[in-house]
Design a protein around this nucleic acid. Structure first.
Lengths: 210, 210
DNA sequence: TAGATTGTTAATCGATTAACAATC
DNA sequence: TAGATTGTTAATCGATTAACAATC
């Protein structure tokens, strides 16, 4: 039993396909070929067909993919055909922006808790979400059964808080702190760090001569 | 002439190596082996040695890599041995957080301009950076010779503004808007979108049964 | 029907890993 | 010297692309 697992690199492209498909649906398109979708994403048509065929036969010869149908399939595959509750840790600039961001809801996510250690912030409300004391974090996340956290705390405390999140049952962490988190098998961590992206790009830039 | 170019996937790992090396230097470590560095990053020792050897011989048999020396080399290779001026477009939650972020400076970047279209924001100051009218953007970026921009504007206007940035001489865009930008050859674009990461992770999560 | 495009197989390409001589 | 670890080559592994029969 059990077909061989889908390569993670394939899974990592599905959200990009979904985002593009959403956009095309907004534009009023009804069908899209692998070629057109690939052109938008800078990916080959063959790769898109191969990726999608891992999950089923979603297209039709001659006409391509029906956009509403493909959208539905991608949403189901990525398990965002429900709303996932998310906790945000850290109510600084980044954490506040995440708590306020309106784009989560329509893509399967809802920020339901926000934690900080600063007494000046605790009790205040951001986008109708009360800032709670991080000391309560483990208990509150455990009782709510939250599986996803976004970590926007200072680098020196990120590992310690990540450990507590995992102890509380969190299994996926989107980490905004510029540190590599050590986590046990089975815990997903992804990283957002603008400096990493900028340094990647400067490799290719030429210094201005002035 | 011209050796074959370094694969981009190798370049993309260098900032991660640099971040880890910075951390180790802070911890007071002096030497690091490819094995230890790999363990921290979840990368094989062989890959680290192979990656670094693309740029020179930075290690020593028996002892590994001298941390301050390797740091210096990575900084040079990534061209962050200078300070790059960066423009931020959009003074909403994300743009403001970027303008305030203190972590850029020590890694080679400095936010020097901030633009928005909202008259209520123009003229105000965020972290000593004046919010300027986006109508002035092209002129101001051109005259300052800025090559790097972070784009934190609403999705519907992102492409249009990206086109103007490129016309103004920008060659690297860190795009926070959830759209795929179409850019000509030679322009670097990288993407930060929390929804993409969250949807990647939910693929692997099991729904709570409750 | 003719044209277009899928899903899939085989070929190609590129990246990672294993292994080890060189050497600190 | 003995032990450790590099840089590099060859082997392996996996991902991407090309090609095409099937079919809408």
């Amino acid at each position: 039993m059990g077909r061989t697992a889908i390569p993670d690199i394939v899974v990592s492209r599905l959200p990009l396909y979904l985002r593009a498909i959403n956009r095309m649906e907004e534009e009023g398109l009804e069908y899209i070929s692998s070629h057109e979708l690939g052109a938008r994403l800078g990916i080959s048509a063959a790769q898109i067909r191969k990726d999608l065929s891992q999950f089923g036969e979603f297209g039709k010869q001659g006409t391509g993919y029906h956009i509403p149908f493909l959208k539905k399939q991608l949403i189901r595959i990525l398990k965002v055909d429900r709303v996932w509750d998310v906790a945000v840790i850290g109510a600084g600039d980044v954490g506040s922006a995440l708590a306020r961001y309106q784009g989560f809801r329509e893509h399967g996510f809802r920020v339901v808790m926000l934690f900080d250690s600063d007494p000046a912030k605790i009790g205040h409300t951001i986008n109708d979400i009360e800032v709670q004391d991080v000391a309560q974090m483990e208990a509150r996340i455990t009782e709510a059964g939250i599986q996803i956290a976004m970590l926007a705390v200072p680098a020196p405390v990120a590992q310690e808080i990540a450990d507590k999140l995992i102890a509380a049952g969190v299994r996926a962490i989107l980490n905004y702190a510029p540190v590599n988190l050590a986590v046990r098998e089975g815990i997903r961590v992804e990283h957002i760090d603008p400096v990493i992206h900028l340094q990647h790009m400067t490799y290719y830039l030429m210094p201005r001569e002035d």
